[in-house]
């Protein structure tokens, strides 16, 4: 480690361990490299809630021979994190904006995604994309819900949309006695598992590592997500706006960068519709 690197790692306290996954010759997924990625706060933020500076990072010196896996192995901090921490987006055909309704994490090479249950229930609860039909929720025709994963800017850039092919949440429907009020979904836990399509050419998604062990008192907790992410303008191919803007390959504009916050877990554990922890945090003043 050089003096510069040693200085950086002592200054940068917030970071994550990022694994690089690829499909091996035997067809099985595997970790080919690991790297600690540290986040440096942009000017104007405090140390507990900040947008991070994006720095060029090389995940491995032995990149995969699969093109898509190779392009996911280097780039800015922002780009690498967006391979694993992704915005959940929703829109109806014909809309001019894509709603950014939450954050999700990739947790398997095949495309399993972890997010909050109330995020995927938002189209029903807010009434813009789903209805309850015979005890089960179904998307409206023309409704899209999924995540955005960026393409390496070195190879054209843009965003790929991966729709949710399947969603599982846990809880019970509570029938409303009032005609004017919709039935409510009472969550057993605010966790949802979703499935998105695989990457092109059999490449691996880049999942994050998970642990079933609980936090211990005093342990630091970091959350990384799309806080206050603005809706994304949607431009359709062939439209006057599309021609004017000269989009390269994809109809989506670049999403804003991830904004992590970092806090200390309190020793108090709350029970609220399933296992819940509470953590102190501060947000920047609006």
């Amino acid at each position: 480690m050089t003096d510069t690197q040693a200085k950086d790692t002592t200054e940068l306290k917030t970071g994550i361990l990022k694994s690089l996954w690829s499909r091996g010759p035997n067809g099985r997924w595997g970790v080919t490299d690991m790297k600690g990625i540290y986040f440096r706060s942009k000017p104007g933020f405090d140390g507990n809630y900040f947008a991070f500076e994006s720095e060029m990072t090389l995940m491995t010196t032995r990149p995969s021979q699969n093109f898509h896996e190779m392009t996911a192995s280097f780039g800015s901090t922002d780009f690498l994190m967006k391979q694993s921490v992704v915005p959940v987006v929703a829109w109806n055909e014909g809309d001019t904006l894509i709603r950014c309704i939450g954050t999700a994490s990739i947790i398997s090479c095949s495309g399993l995604v972890l997010t909050a249950a109330h995020v995927v229930m938002d189209p029903y609860e807010s009434g813009y994309g789903a209805s309850l039909v015979e005890g089960q929720m179904k998307w409206h025709d023309g409704f899209n819900l999924g995540v955005l994963i960026p393409i390496n800017p070195a190879f054209g850039g843009g965003e790929r949309f991966f729709p949710f092919e399947g969603v599982t949440t846990w809880g019970n429907w509570i029938e409303s006695p009032m005609i004017t009020e919709k039935d409510k979904f009472e969550y057993l836990t605010d966790i949802a598992i979703c499935k998105i399509p695989g990457m092109p050419d059999g490449a691996a998604h880049q999942p994050l590592n998970m642990s079933l062990n609980p936090f211990v008192p005093g342990e630091m907790a970091y959350a990384l997500g799309y806080a206050k992410m603005e809706d994304v303008p949607l431009v359709y191919r062939g439209s006057p706006q599309h021609s004017r803007k000269r989009q390269k390959r994809y109809t989506f504009l670049q999403a804003k960068c991830c904004k992590p916050f970092r806090k200390i877990i309190s020793t108090r554990v709350l029970r609220h519709q399933g296992p819940v922890l509470t953590l102190k945090q501060r947000f920047p003043v609006k």
Partner: peptide, 18 residues
């Protein structure tokens, strides 16, 4: 931040969801 991963073990693993 809803749905964002909560990292523990100094950022090594996800332990929860916001």
């Amino acid at each position: 931040m809803s749905g964002a991963p909560i990292f523990g073990a100094q950022g090594a693993v996800i332990r929860g969801i916001v």
